[in-house]
Measured scan of single mutants.
Amino acid sequence: NLRWTSEAKTKLKNIPFFARSQAKARIEQLARQAEQDIVTPELVEQARLEFG
């Protein structure tokens, strides 16, 4: 299971509600691909840039 830093959680809250669950799934996918067990603000930002 993935842990989220408080900064990453804050960044996730800045994503519009309607896109948040999809973004969260993508962020967690990116973390797993990078073999990380902690979601960082950088991963959230990477996903945000993908979504535009």
Rank of each mutant, 00 (worst) to 15 (best):
K13N: 14
E42D: 13
I38A: 05
Q22W: 12
S6F: 10
E42P: 03
K11M: 15
K24M: 11
I15T: 03
R3K: 13
L12P: 00
K9G: 03
N14Y: 10
Q33W: 10
Q22L: 13
K13F: 12
A31G: 02
A47P: 01
W4V: 00
I27D: 00
E45D: 12
V44R: 00
N1S: 14
D37K: 12
Q29G: 07
L2R: 02
E28D: 03
F18N: 10
V44T: 01
T5E: 05
A19M: 15
Q46C: 05
L12H: 01
L49M: 11
A25G: 05
R3C: 08
K24P: 01
N1L: 12
E28K: 02
R32V: 09
V39R: 00
Q33H: 08
R20D: 02
W4P: 00
A23C: 08
W4M: 00
N1A: 11
K9L: 14
Q46T: 06
F17R: 12
V39I: 14
K24T: 06
K11A: 14
T10V: 12
A31Y: 01
A31V: 06
T10H: 13
I38T: 09
K13R: 12
I15A: 03
R48M: 15
L12I: 04
A31F: 01
L30D: 02
A23H: 08
D37R: 10
Q46E: 07
E50N: 07
A8M: 01
I15F: 13
P16L: 03
K11Y: 11
R20Q: 08
A8V: 01
Q36W: 10
E50T: 09
V44D: 00
T10F: 11
T40N: 03
W4L: 00
A34E: 08
S6D: 15
G52L: 15
K13S: 11
K13D: 12
E42L: 06
E7T: 07
W4S: 00
E28W: 02
K9R: 11
E45V: 06
Q22Y: 12
R26F: 14
R48P: 02
D37N: 13
Q46L: 13
E35V: 06
I15D: 02
R20G: 02
F51L: 08
R48K: 10
T5P: 02
R48V: 14
G52K: 12
E28I: 07
R3E: 10
K24W: 03
A23Q: 05
L43W: 04
E28V: 05
E45K: 05
L2G: 02
R3T: 15
T5S: 12
E50M: 12
R48C: 08
S21I: 11
R48E: 11
R26K: 09
S21D: 12
A31N: 00
R26E: 04
Q36A: 10
R26P: 01
F18Y: 14
E45T: 05
L49Y: 08
K11E: 09
A23E: 03
G52I: 15
E50V: 07
S21Y: 07
V39H: 00
Q36T: 15
E50W: 09
E45W: 06
R20I: 05
I27S: 12
N14G: 10
A23M: 15
L49R: 13
F18A: 10
P16K: 04
F18K: 09
V39F: 00
Q29V: 08
F51D: 04
K11G: 07
T10W: 10
T10C: 08
K24D: 01
K11S: 12
D37F: 14
Q22C: 09
Q33K: 11
Q36P: 01
G52F: 12
T5H: 04
R20P: 02
I27G: 02
D37Y: 14
Q33E: 14
T40E: 03
V44F: 07
F51E: 04
F17S: 13
I15H: 02
A25N: 10
A47T: 06
A19F: 15
I15W: 12
E45Y: 06
T40H: 03
K11R: 12
L30H: 03
F18Q: 08
L2C: 03
S6M: 08
W4F: 01
R20K: 04
E28F: 02
L2P: 08
A34T: 11
E35W: 08
K24N: 02
Q22M: 12
I38P: 08
A23V: 15
I38C: 06
I15R: 01
V39W: 00
I15E: 02
T5F: 02
Q33N: 10
L2H: 02
R3I: 14
I27R: 01
V44L: 03
A8H: 01
W4H: 00
A47L: 08
K11V: 10
R3P: 09
V39K: 00
E50G: 07
A25Y: 11
Q46I: 13
K13E: 13
L43G: 01
A19K: 13
D37E: 11
R20C: 04
Q46K: 12
A34W: 13
E50R: 05
Q46G: 03
R32E: 06
K13V: 05
P16Q: 03
A8I: 01
I27K: 01
K24C: 05
E35M: 15
A23D: 01
Q46V: 09
E45C: 05
D37H: 12
E35T: 07
K9T: 11
E42T: 05
A23G: 02
K9Q: 10
V44P: 00
E35A: 13
A25K: 14
E7Q: 09
L30W: 08
A23I: 15
E7D: 08
A19L: 15
F51K: 05
F51R: 04
R26L: 11
I38F: 10
N1Y: 13
S21P: 07
N14H: 09
T5I: 03
V44N: 00
I27Q: 00
S6T: 12
R32N: 06
E42C: 04
A8W: 01
Q46R: 13
L30I: 08
Q46M: 13
F51S: 06
A25L: 12
T10L: 15
L49G: 07
Q29L: 10
E7Y: 04
R26S: 04
A23W: 13
D37Q: 12
A34K: 13
K11I: 13
A31S: 03
F17V: 10
V44S: 01
A8T: 01
E50D: 06
A23S: 04
V39D: 00
E42A: 08
E7H: 05
E50L: 11
G52W: 14
I27V: 11
E35I: 05
E35D: 14
P41F: 05
N1G: 13
A19Q: 14
L43S: 02
W4G: 01
S21A: 15
Q46A: 08
A47Q: 03
R3Y: 14
R26D: 04
K9V: 14
E50I: 11
F18T: 06
I15S: 02
F51I: 12
D37T: 15
I27T: 06
T40C: 03
W4K: 01
K13T: 07
A34C: 08
K9P: 00
S21E: 14
A23L: 15
V39M: 01
Q33T: 09
G52T: 14
E42V: 05
L30T: 02
K11T: 06
R32G: 03
T40P: 02
Q22N: 09
P41M: 09
E35H: 15
R20L: 06
I27P: 00
I27L: 02
E50A: 06
R3V: 14
S6V: 07
K11F: 08
S21L: 11
A19H: 13
V39G: 00
R26C: 04
E45N: 07
